[in-house]
């Protein structure tokens, strides 16, 4: 016993180091499993409050540019407002009455924390449960899609950014309708890759890439970006398309959380059929 205590005393520095380091790495691994974490992130209230103060200042500096963006968004959403409604019954003449049921709701909010320089980036929004934001809702900005809500507290939400290697989004080419999955390679915050497109289709530089609407999160037709280049991989049936994002993630500020009112219905149905 005495020699054990002596041993611990002699190597206490190294033992403490190993203990703390193991604990830190345990935290990192636990955290990388990003679906499971719900604690100590920037949606907690202390750091959330600090960030919203900070954001108050930085927003003022970008006022002019952001006003422009808001006008743009107002215009595009006036135009889109009919698209946010889904036909409830088949009829040849459109009547703006109860034949439409609302499918999507847009909750306006602001980005109060953001990063683009990590391998897996996250954003924090100043809206949470109280504003109707819950997990797995989509986040879009006037210029295009932003990400998916990972977690929410009463007043804040943390969002998995498109610039996160763990996130895959179903996207399609607007011109031809072929779809693939969108993924970030962790290198440049302006570009993402569209994978799994068959190699026989024609893709031109500048083609518009939009969300496919096949997942239950994003509405169909939200802008993602424009084709920048095509990479053929030898012998593979698929091509890789490089897409320039339409959103500038470095100065993103006003966004909307999209709540799909019919999501549960769709998921229940899909689960039911996949169990059969």
């Amino acid at each position: 016993m005495k020699s054990l205590l002596k041993f611990i005393y002699k190597y206490h520095y190294f033992i403490i180091f190993i203990l703390i380091e193991c604990f830190s790495i345990f935290l990192t691994i636990q955290y990388n499993d990003y679906q499971k974490t719900a604690y100590l992130n920037s949606s907690n209230n202390l750091s959330g409050a600090v960030y919203s103060k900070m954001n108050g200042i930085s927003q003022y500096l970008n006022l002019k540019e952001k006003n422009q963006e808001l006008i743009y968004s107002l215009a595009s959403y006036k135009e889109l407002s009919k698209k946010a409604y889904k036909k409830n019954q088949i009829s040849l003449i459109e009547v703006y009455d109860s034949v439409y049921i609302q499918q999507f709701e847009f909750i306006p909010c602001q980005v109060i924390n953001n990063s683009v320089n990590k391998q897996n980036n996250y954003l924090t929004l100043n809206a949470g449960f109280k504003q109707g934001v819950i997990r797995e809702m989509a986040v879009v900005s006037p210029m295009g899609i932003v990400g998916i809500v990972k977690d929410a507290t009463d007043n804040y939400a943390s969002v998995i950014s498109v610039l996160n290697q763990n996130l895959r989004i179903s996207a399609m080419l607007k011109r031809t309708g072929y779809f693939g999955s969108l993924n970030w390679d962790g290198l440049d915050y302006r570009y993402v890759n569209l994978l799994d497109l068959p190699n026989h289709i024609s893709v031109n530089k500048g083609d518009t890439v939009i969300t496919s609407g096949y997942s239950s999160m994003f509405p169909k037709g939200e802008l993602i970006g424009f084709v920048e280049g095509i990479e053929d991989s030898d012998g593979s049936e698929f091509i890789k398309v490089r897409v320039k994002l339409s959103v500038n993630f470095k100065n993103i500020s006003n966004v909307m959380v999209v709540s799909n009112l019919l999501r549960n219905e769709q998921l229940t149905l899909e689960n039911k059929s996949s169990h059969d």
């Binding site: 790495i25 345990f26 990192t28 636990q30 955290y31 920037s42 907690n44 750091s47 600090v50 924390n113």
Partner: peptide, 11 residues
């Protein structure tokens, strides 16, 4: 805590 990278900077 501020950068959502729990454990990385700590280790």
């Amino acid at each position: 805590m501020f950068t959502d990278t729990l454990g990385m900077h700590a280790s």
